[in-house]
Design a protein around this nucleic acid. Sequence first.
DNA 1: GACCGATGTGTAACTGGTTACGGATGCTAG
DNA 2: CTAGCATCCGTAACCAGTTACACATCGGTC
Lengths: 372, 372
Amino acid sequence: MLAGSTLDKDLFGRSTEQKYGSGNTLTYLEVLRVATAYEVAQHAGVSVGTVSRYLNQNGYVAAKTAGRIRAAIEELGYVPNGAARSLTTKRTGLIGFVVSDLRNPFTAELADAIQERANEGGSCVVLYGTNGDEERTVRGIAALRGHNIDGLIVTPPESPKINRAVTSAADAGIPVVLIGMTLDRPAGDRVSTDTYQGAGAALEHLAGLGHRRIGFVGARDQAQGRRRAYEDSLTRLGLVSDPRLCVLTELTRKGGLQAADALLDLPDPPTAIFAANDVMALGVYEAAYRRGTHIPSQLSVVGFDDIDLASHAAPPLTTVAQPKRQMGIEAMRLLESRLNDLTQFDPRDLRLNCRLVLRESTAPPPGEESQR
Amino acid sequence: MLAGSTLDKDLFGRSTEQKYGSGNTLTYLEVLRVATAYEVAQHAGVSVGTVSRYLNQNGYVAAKTAGRIRAAIEELGYVPNGAARSLTTKRTGLIGFVVSDLRNPFTAELADAIQERANEGGSCVVLYGTNGDEERTVRGIAALRGHNIDGLIVTPPESPKINRAVTSAADAGIPVVLIGMTLDRPAGDRVSTDTYQGAGAALEHLAGLGHRRIGFVGARDQAQGRRRAYEDSLTRLGLVSDPRLCVLTELTRKGGLQAADALLDLPDPPTAIFAANDVMALGVYEAAYRRGTHIPSQLSVVGFDDIDLASHAAPPLTTVAQPKRQMGIEAMRLLESRLNDLTQFDPRDLRLNCRLVLRESTAPPPGEESQR
DNA sequence: GACCGATGTGTAACTGGTTACGGATGCTAG
DNA sequence: CTAGCATCCGTAACCAGTTACACATCGGTC
């Protein structure tokens, strides 16, 4: 109703037409139209410039004027148009997040941390799910660029094509943070965990329990570090190194199940299995459960990630924990720092440590009563 | 390097200056500058209008011209500026998603489905996490509006304040879909599951096994339907109705643990517990585990949601499954339909059915050998 | 009383697209 | 030969803000 009255006279008695010029009157009358800064200005009896200065707290605005503007904003339910704003400011307050699979608790936690930190800084996170698909990852990066994101956070997979897309975004001046990726010459900052160290700790633990034949289940393209750590640890710890003990499928429960089946069907099956992630480890659980193999007395299992699920599995899963939340927060921090100073050129590489969480899925191999 | 050559002459031998006017030459020389449609136009020897028409496939563009534009876009690595575009088109291709907690596998699955469907339609999802906080939910809706989202999807919690924010968004012409919320007079479309039916099925199952004292663990503000269904089912099935059997904490594992502790500490503890969600049910598991109460022989547990975790718990959790993925897809569908026809006024209410998934966490109460 | 800096506000150019409009061209039909 | 239509493309206004600049006012100082 107050909005209606402004159609005649504003606070200073000037008619709408006089100040705003005619021609816009029609659109101004439209229903369901969201208010613009011009309308707020009219309503408060000032000019757009002043409204803008008030909103951005730069330049001078008299206290009395500010009050009138505040009231006008309130009354009209004015929300600044982000598109128009970002056109001149070159900032959208949007952070792009290219993520493989949100259903994976690891990435979900990551996304949550990133989003929380972004929100605190007044930004929002734009998602693009790739399902681990190369083509979709590339498309996602392009799509996000079209939305003028201020920064980009990318999770695996990686490939030459994806590298190119990432580099191209970085070249266009978009700060990029890669999470857990192993690009040789990174196009942006990087946050990762020392999976090599983490996986090494897992293998040491198993070796310490007396295991000699330790299997590995992982994926072809991903988790390279974990696999390398597995192989290196085998030789370092003097364990059996048998190519058949390393089965690569995909990073899903099903993948873990199939891989475990393959391992347990070997004439000389491993007494312990190290999985490249917890989800696969649970697939190993399922394979063991199906064939009546008891964990940990007949088979030890170690996972990677320490997802929420791990502690609730039966038995609770011994696993290598990554500081998921911290990774997300650090990724946003790196982004923020670059946004505040666009002249930084040195790519940073933040490597966080993993921690082995001992639960109940590991024990000495069958037939040994030994150590620990 | 080709970009450099255009500074002198374009394909038609006209100099850059002549066509584009002077004054812009300097900015054109800037490093790290992303190309604009004007630059593409220059490069291809056409005008901006033509470039725009080419991009949007409306109006006429000769095949030869299109080819030149395509080449120019390719060479300059041009990506249209979404902000500028949306300024006139009133569309951003962004869908706002206000979500309580991404770490909850239920909402994660929801988010994933929404995001996938949105991507297919060429949109992206903008996240805002609220952690179940009222204030943050309101702030999130406002923040997303500032980003000119085309549509808004909201998950609980709900409150009068949140209602107002949602209604205000809807009044501003933003299509809204509520997921799993129970607003009396909805401001937008709604997708929900018949939790009443689902919870009823769970209670029937427990009653069928012979349970008479069945506890409920839930949260104060949320999952009203489940609680009401619990209470109604008690009377309908002629079970013990005792206010002490209904404990309300929060929808987390910890909440479930505390609530279960309270129930099991009763002088006359329940023989079965129905949890408002699976995460709480796992808290119940933990409470039982800590005091050595065996599930299901000494205590039956039924959850709600059928998160991934449920089937992997020890023992696998009997739970009420919601069609999570379908809910997300339907939500996006409703949004899309409204976006294609903004004149629809009737709010729609999609109610999907729940399904009771029988696993191994339920059994007849101790001391009974009876039914089924 | 003239000068000065601090404070407050309006004007208009600018951001990077879209699109209505109109002019130019080419082809066909009368 | 020309009217008429389809095709093609450039011009300029417009979207909703931001911001440099100019101008106005005011209190205080010499």
